[in-house]
């Protein structure tokens, strides 16, 4: 389907600490400049948030992550978004990542919807010119044109999410991360979101969806990865159905 993969995780391990880490970690950082601590060993109070994760994703593909809370789903998204780095292994990202950040992040409540489109758009990597060109489509998609010049502290939480989603899907990024967010707003809007996500996928973007909604994942993604206690395994049941679908 595609030539080069946009995301590659090769034998990725990520270590975290149960306890509050900040007192130790700056000291560790300083020590690590002088000596290499043994990365593969766990010290007191540490655990593997991810163990030996291997993953490939190309443009035009969509995968789903499924698993209990605290299984490591968000950690993988963080690695892909380059906000954190693996303890061992390699994370290769070829392209711009647009994480769909959750409600509120980057939004300022005192500013209007229109102003927040500029802020949020810039945060997910759009230039001011790009936002100016796309702002009408974003507002139209969000169906919030009547409220767009109102401070968003007066918005309902559903309206917040709609606005956030509408900005993100107009990003020109190659990689989209949807963390528990495709089930935004009312039913009509949800359908619209899913359709837009499909459109992005069909237009060569790579998409990762994290959800507890198995039905949604089955519908959207080619492969579903089960993540439990940092160990990632694929689910093959879906694969056959998916190929059949492609043959039509």
């Amino acid at each position: 389907m595609s030539s080069d993969s946009l995301i590659e995780l090769k034998g990725v391990w990520k270590k975290y600490n149960y306890r509050e880490t900040f007192h130790r970690s700056i000291r560790e950082d300083i020590f690590n400049i002088f000596r290499r601590t043994r990365r593969e060993e766990l010290q007191d109070g540490e655990f593997w948030a991810l163990s030996d994760v291997n993953l490939r994703l190309s443009g035009g593909e969509c995968i789903g992550f499924y698993g209990p809370n605290g299984a490591g789903k968000s950690t993988i998204l963080k690695l892909i978004a380059s906000v954190t780095y693996p303890t061992m292994g390699e994370v290769i990202i070829r392209g711009v990542v647009a994480p769909l950040i959750e409600l509120g992040a980057g939004f300022h409540l005192d500013l209007t919807g229109r102003e927040n489109i500029y802020i949020n758009g810039a945060i997910i990597g759009m230039t001011i010119r790009e936002i100016r060109e796309k702002i009408d489509s974003i507002i139209e998609f969000s169906e919030l044109s009547d409220f767009i010049d109102m401070p968003i502290k007066k918005y309902s939480s559903g309206m917040h999410l709609r606005l956030g989603f509408s900005i993100a899907v107009y990003s020109s990024a190659e990689i989209f991360l949807f963390d528990e967010i495709l089930t935004v707003g009312d039913e009509d809007f949800q359908l619209k979101c899913l359709e837009r996500a499909r459109w992005l996928r069909n237009n060569g973007r790579a998409i990762i969806i994290v959800s507890h909604d198995k039905k949604l994942l089955n519908e959207m993604s080619g492969t579903i990865y089960h993540i439990n206690k940092g160990i990632v395994s694929t689910e093959d049941v879906k694969a056959s159905g998916d190929t059949a679908h492609h043959n039509i």
Binding site: A81, V83, P99, I101
Partner: peptide, 11 residues
């Protein structure tokens, strides 16, 4: 104060 951004997106 911007920890939500820092844990979600790179810049």
């Amino acid at each position: 104060t911007q920890y939500q951004l820092i844990t979600k997106i790179y810049f």
